[in-house]
Design a protein around this nucleic acid. Structure first.
Lengths: 212, 212
DNA sequence: CCATAAATTTGTACTAAGTACAATATTTTG
DNA sequence: CAAAATATTGTACTTAGTACAAATTTATGG
């Protein structure tokens, strides 16, 4: 009997979750850099080594949804109408994320606090930048795949970099609006306005390529 | 007599240079992550603490020209014709860097090796990303200053992010061309072509703002 | 030139992340 | 229940970076 949900698997998941919960609590209370892995281990009643078993780097305790953006991209391109320009697929995806107030396009006190914690920690900021670059690479590969090119070419890399940059700027401005106590509607509007302007410009950059 | 080039100042400069030289040598020979600060100190015949005195972080031993990009930006905007659109100033600046084969737009075996060393080290890559973000902040401030806005506004941040992203992509593609053994002319052409396309798109994004 | 101030260099001790690897405990399986 | 597989723990280590005091070197005023 191979055991996808035996005692062992359940315990592992519970241990992982316990560590993650304890860590999150400590981080928001005292800041990422003021909590050591040893403390987390102790609070989670587990050895320091076990923490590193589940979370190879300390930053992984904070960013626990890395996989999600990858999945969202894959799904968007899997479901897109045949023949739609890749850039249009992304445009619709961003709209849809904003409509659904998905975490990647949501502006609340909680998200503001989350990103403030990141900004206050050099290590977390560095990891966030790293994830951004990985996302660009992924997106470039997905884009190239969508038009059946074997490898990400220069156009795909340009498109991917520009779109991710646009989202970053738009999201940052959205957060700023939220912190300035604007209404949810006007915050969302600020986000989407930057995205729309960006997509118009990116379309020009990609004119003549198969991506626009 | 206050002493801008007394014995003390000269010794300091010599020490700094000696450390930097020794470090560079070791890094290119064995890779950034395989050389410890203690080794560098020993090779430079100086104490470990002295290394950290001059270079607060190990990465600073490798990236020793951080200030330069800031200066170039400042200079470009100080010298620009009155009334020129800031985006045009940047366009001319990029052209000029390419014409002069400035390090930021130069594609040789040496620059390729330099960036390969960076790519092979997580720490150096992280620092490079950090510097990129700092450059964006600087540029946003310079842009806002150029049209006499007190603080970097959303448009300035969008413009700055997009231009720096464009340069990053264009430079990366330039390096790729070089490594693929293209001629210097065609490498330069690839770089400039991406920059030109990008500037066209960015102009669209900024239509109606004082930046374009 | 000398005494003293100022700045640089060094030594010591520390924290904390991350790794290697062996020893131990727990779960699965036959 | 015994043996195999896997998870957890302990120990020892490396390295970047910091705090701070002691020692050395250079500058300066009389």
């Amino acid at each position: 009997m191979s055991n996808r949900d035996g005692l062992r698997e359940r315990k592992k998941e519970a241990t992982r979750q316990a560590i993650s919960d304890v860590a999150t609590e400590l981080f928001v209370a005292r800041g990422f850099d003021n909590v050591s892995v040893a403390e987390i281990a102790e609070a989670a009643e587990v050895s320091r080594m076990t923490v590193f078993n589940y979370f190879p780097r300390k930053e992984d305790l904070f960013f626990d949804r890395e996989e999600e953006s990858r999945q969202i991209l894959k799904a968007a391109f899997a479901e897109r109408p045949a023949g739609e320009a890749p850039l249009m697929t992304l445009r619709r995806l961003v709209q849809s994320l904003a409509d659904r107030a998905h975490p990647f396009a949501k502006f609340t006190d909680a998200t503001a606090k989350f990103w403030r914690t990141v900004a206050e920690s050099p290590a977390l900021s560095a990891r966030a930048r790293e994830m951004r670059d990985e996302l660009i690479d992924d997106l470039a590969a997905v884009l190239a795949g969508a038009i059946k090119r074997p490898l990400a070419d220069a156009d795909a890399r340009l498109a991917a970099s520009m779109v991710v940059t646009a989202v970053t700027v738009a999201y940052t401005e959205g957060l700023r609006e939220h912190k300035a106590r604007r209404s949810a509607a006007s915050t969302r509007e600020a986000f989407l306005q930057i995205m729309e302007r960006s997509f118009s410009g990116i379309a020009i950059m990609l004119k003549g390529t198969p991506y626009a």
